[in-house]
Design a protein around this nucleic acid. Sequence first.
DNA 1: GCCAACGTTGGC
DNA 2: GCCAACGTTGGC
Length: 160
Amino acid sequence: MNYWLLKSEPSEFSIDDLEASPNHQTCWDGVRNYQARNFMRDAMADGDLAFFYHSNCAEPGIAGIARVVSAAYPDHTAFDPTDKHFDAASDPDNPRWYMVDVRYERKLLRPISLKEMKQYKDNALQELALLRRGNRLSVMPVTAEQWNFVVGLEQRKPVA
DNA sequence: GCCAACGTTGGC
DNA sequence: GCCAACGTTGGC
């Protein structure tokens, strides 16, 4: 099983929106970056776990956990001219973009802010893709060690 | 294949 | 709103 971090702007789609979705799940559409797509298409698997990260908001950080509940399949929103993420270059016979289904798992006991994670950028989270310089990927891998470390932070009192 | 211009992301 | 860091595009 693999671990991931999925970014979403809460003003667009938050962890609360995921929880409120039918069956607490949704298709993770709209990924339009090749590296992010490759992670989803080639490495994500049904049953994987993912941090749900809130970006571009007042308190950026990990809000909760979602589970990947499908393999990757073509992102049909790329074929819809009325969709925000329409891509005329994506051919239904040779789809350019993929998505997976994700299901709400739980919120963290407390959100783990980007600020808090940065406190470990020189040790436990040194290799965390999210903290690597200038990483703007919306789908990023997380190692088991990093995953367990962040989940462990949940139990602690936040350090000022 | 190079690279300048442009657009987007996302923290602050 | 600003701006750094990239990714993409397209002329050559």
